[in-house]
Amino acid sequence: MSTPEDRLQALGLVLPEVGPPLGSYVHAVRTGTLLFLAGKGPGTPAAPDLKVGREISVEQARADARHTGLTLIAVLKQELGDLSHVKRIVKVLGMVNAVPEFGQHPEVINGCSDLFVEVFGEAGKHARSAVGMGSLPRGISVEIEAIVEVTDPQ
């Protein structure tokens, strides 16, 4: 049976470095067997006036959501040491920096959701909200946070 790390390697994916938080928060907070991951973005801010549904395509925003999912997995790896400690991705909140008339938020956040299933299999299937925002920090196209159940509560 393959591990999440094996699946990442098979997909040709490398986890990005997790730098320090960009504000007065931490990357993750654990309570019992739940790990709450702080919101992350794709790492490549757009200009603040660029919006999904106008200058940013659904395809590009979906790719940004996938990259954001990879960053969330990197935070999990940093916190847990071994991705095999992920019992279940419980909940994902995906926020899309979109024009008011945009309605394809689920298609954008599928970039992250699909990645979680590719890496964690059935344990990657989760409850989710995908919503639009008038703006996001530093002009990023998406911000995604997650709640994860872990098998090693420490």
Rank of each mutant, 00 (worst) to 15 (best):
A130M: 05
M133P: 07
A63K: 14
T3Y: 12
P106T: 07
H105S: 00
A38Y: 02
G139M: 08
L115A: 02
L11F: 14
V75G: 00
G121D: 15
P16G: 08
E145V: 06
C112L: 13
D114Y: 03
E122F: 01
A127F: 10
V18G: 05
T44A: 13
T71R: 07
L22N: 06
I140P: 00
V52L: 04
I73G: 00
G39Y: 02
E5R: 12
K40Y: 02
F102W: 09
E101H: 14
A98M: 05
G111D: 03
G23L: 09
V14W: 00
L34F: 14
L35M: 09
V99Y: 00
T3M: 13
I73A: 00
L50H: 11
G23A: 15
G134P: 08
K125H: 10
E17H: 09
P137M: 14
R138M: 13
D82Q: 11
G32H: 12
P48L: 11
A61Q: 02
I140H: 14
P20Q: 14
V150S: 00
A47I: 04
K51A: 07
G41Q: 03
L76G: 01
T3Q: 12
L8V: 12
V108E: 00
P106G: 06
E79K: 04
N97R: 12
E122L: 08
I109H: 00
S141P: 10
E55Y: 02
Q78N: 13
A127I: 08
V18K: 04
A61K: 03
L80R: 00
A65N: 12
V92E: 00
D82L: 09
R128H: 10
A123W: 00
E118T: 10
Q104S: 11
P106H: 05
R128M: 12
L34P: 01
A47G: 10
H27D: 13
T31V: 14
V29A: 03
R88D: 03
T151D: 10
L22G: 02
L76V: 06
R62A: 11
K87Q: 12
V117H: 03
A10E: 15
V150N: 01
I109C: 03
V119S: 05
V99H: 01
V52N: 01
V148F: 01
L34N: 05
V14D: 05
A46W: 09
M95R: 15
L37S: 04
G81I: 08
I73N: 00
G41D: 15
A98C: 15
V119P: 09
L13V: 06
T3I: 10
G39H: 01
P45C: 07
A10K: 15
T68L: 06
V92M: 08
I147H: 02
F36E: 07
V96L: 09
A28L: 11
L70C: 05
G41T: 11
V29I: 14
T151V: 06
T33K: 13
V29R: 14
E79T: 03
V96H: 07
H67G: 01
V29K: 12
G124K: 04
G111I: 04
Q154S: 13
I140L: 11
E79R: 08
E107P: 05
A63L: 14
G41M: 02
L22P: 06
V86R: 02
P4H: 06
G132M: 09
A10P: 05
D152G: 02
F102C: 08
A63G: 09
P16D: 06
Q104M: 10
C112I: 09
L22F: 03
G111E: 04
L76S: 01
V142Q: 04
D6L: 11
